[in-house]
């Protein structure tokens, strides 16, 4: 029997008395790319945090490879819209990526190469641009060998050229088997292919088109 990589069933969440998500069902196969659209405040970021296990649902469950998330959360990498990472910390790009894989240098080098940041390996993380910060966090996720990449508004703070680069990177990752989920407001880059589109509306997840 085929088991999707990441499954969510009857997922629900509320902030206090305010319900945000209800009866969310989602299957993410390996190598898939899913776009979740929705207006501000519809719960896109909340959904990604539920899928990563950062938030606990008020109902329903999430499973990775058929098993509960506990003990497997490092296989789900969440790159938030506004990372809480302290960018002034004394560390270079290679050091940040290596943290994701316990200091494994070869894996870190490969991850940096995949996101096109090899020339910036010795750059202090406090000097990185917004687009570079996105990419270095994706590199860290790759170094930790995450099976699922959850990206909250990855196109928000980057220019058009960087968007296309990011689109190509995500397409390459899905081709290699990583499941990618991203949220976005505006149009997607042309380089991002084979995207399943869903819309979050009134707490429910609906297909687009």
């Amino acid at each position: 029997m085929f088991v999707p990589l990441l499954q969510a069933r009857q997922l629900a969440f509320a902030y206090g008395d305010h319900p945000v998500l209800e009866f969310i069902n989602l299957d993410l196969p390996m190598g898939s790319c899913t776009l979740i659209q929705g207006d501000n405040g519809t719960g896109k970021s909340t959904l990604l945090q539920l899928l990563q296990g950062k938030l606990q649902p008020s109902a329903g469950w999430v499973r990775l490879a058929g098993r509960p998330l506990r003990g497997q959360r490092r296989r789900l990498a969440l790159v938030p819209q506004v990372p809480s990472l302290r960018w002034h910390y004394p560390l270079d790009v290679m050091g940040l990526v290596a943290l994701g894989c316990g200091g494994h240098h070869q894996r870190s080098r490969q991850a940096l190469e995949q996101v096109g940041l090899t020339p910036q390996a010795q750059t202090a993380i406090c000097s990185l641009s917004g687009g570079q910060r996105q990419r270095v966090l994706i590199a860290r996720a790759l170094a930790q060998q995450a099976a699922v990449l959850l990206l909250d508004e990855p196109m928000a703070f980057v220019d058009a050229a960087s968007r296309e680069q990011l689109g190509s990177l995500l397409s390459a990752l899905t081709a290699a088997g990583t499941a990618v989920v991203l949220t976005a407001h505006g149009p997607l880059p042309a380089s991002l292919q084979a995207v399943r589109q869903l819309r979050l509306q009134h707490g429910q997840l609906l297909p687009v088109g």
């Binding site: 990563q52 296990g53 950062k54 506990r70 003990g71 959360r73 490092r74 990498a77 969440l78 990372p83 809480s84 990472l85 302290r86 910390y89 560390l91 050091g95 940040l96 943290l99 994701g100 930790q144």
Partner: peptide, 15 residues
Amino acid sequence: LQWLGLDPEGAEAME
């Protein structure tokens, strides 16, 4: 210690 100083939320996400 690096995780605690750099990204405590990320550390929690990695369990």
